[in-house]
């Protein structure tokens, strides 16, 4: 299987990153790569349901936020619990919440599901904002580890998550995801329980997005409702896989990277408050015009076309 290739590439990428950290003091770039990695992790989680099952969620910030607040809240209450443990617990909490919420939410499909997840995001954010026990709009500061530890940690997790998802979608469970997306009736006819299969993708995906949230708390040392539970967070989580190529591990990886880079570049160029969204919006329009399936499948098609044209020429 080509999983070996993925593991080898992952290890090489990690070593290169560590070398880069040692040899230069480009803190800005290291910081940036870590930030991208957070959205890569969250986006891979979103992609399990959105890409592999085909149910578009507009509220994944909920799981990101649960992950982040599972790290933040004990700190806010001055409990002395290991932060790494809290990160893992955050992923677990996001998964449990997804399991509970899947019962009503996954009964609907398509547009109603999209609206439902958006509504869920609004409800949960509102609850956090008005609840003093959750530190309301003030948020929580976290005295986190040094960047020399958190950055490699986040990048390591991102690499591991990408490899994990690539592995999962080729397991029997992953094939079931695709079967449900391709033809639900035929999927039932080979004994697949559609609800259970969707719920598995939803829960595993939510755990990954929750993991990203927990790591976000370590990365920034701060959590608040708008950064963790905000609509923008939901949108940036889904935009990566969506633009990159829905239902493809590499597509989601590319997409998240491109979206975050573009956003940050735009932020430094366009100084009007919120003006950088213009770039992201424009990217979305351009990508959807050029390749409906996203950047990665678009590039693959283009390469094939060029190859074919080249071979034809050679044949003549």
């Amino acid at each position: 299987m080509n999983l070996k290739k993925w593991v080898v590439s992952g290890v090489i990428a990690f070593i290169l990153y560590m070398l880069f950290l040692r040899l230069t003091d480009a803190g800005f770039i290291a910081n940036f790569i870590a930030y991208i990695s957070l959205f890569v992790i969250a986006g891979q989680g979103w992609n399990l349901l959105g890409g592999y099952i085909g149910e578009i969620s507009f509220g994944h910030a909920v799981f990101f936020g649960i992950g982040a607040y599972t790290v933040g809240l004990p700190v806010g209450y001055k409990l002395d619990i290991n932060l790494l443990l809290l990160v893992l617990l955050g992923a677990l909490m996001a998964g449990i919440f997804a399991l509970i919420i899947s019962y009503p939410l996954l009964r609907v499909q398509g547009f109603p599901f999209l609206v439902g997840t958006y509504g869920l995001g609004v409800v949960i954010r509102s609850i956090v904002v008005v609840t003093p026990a959750l530190f309301a709009t003030r948020g929580i500061f976290i005295s986190t580890y040094s960047k020399n530890f958190t950055y490699p940690l986040i990048i390591g997790f991102a690499i591991a998550v990408v490899i994990f998802v690539q592995w999962l979608v080729n397991q029997d469970l992953g094939l079931r995801f695709k079967a449900v997306r391709d033809v639900p009736t035929a999927a039932r006819m080979i004994g697949i329980n559609i609800y259970k299969t969707k719920a598995s993708a939803f829960v595993i995906g939510a755990m990954l997005t929750g993991l990203a949230g927990g790591l976000f708390a370590l990365y920034g040392g701060f959590v608040n409702p708008s950064a963790c539970f905000g609509d923008n967070t939901s949108i940036f989580i889904l935009l990566g896989p969506y633009i990159g190529g829905i239902g493809s591990v590499l597509g989601a990886l590319f997409g998240s990277t491109i979206v975050i880079i573009l956003q940050e570049v735009a932020r430094s160029v366009i100084t009007v408050n919120g003006g950088h969204y213009l770039m992201v919006g424009a990217l979305l329009v351009v990508v959807m015009m050029l390749s409906k399936e996203g950047i990665y499948p678009g590039i693959v098609k283009l390469v094939k076309k060029i190859k074919n044209a080249y071979q034809k020429r050679q044949g003549e």
Binding site: D172, L175, R176, A179, D182, V183, T185, A186, I190, I192
Partner: peptide
Amino acid sequence: VMPFKSMTPLENVRVARATAG
């Protein structure tokens, strides 16, 4: 016809084998 079109024939068979099979 309703095969699982995004998968290979082998994967179509594998997933059926792993479920009702």
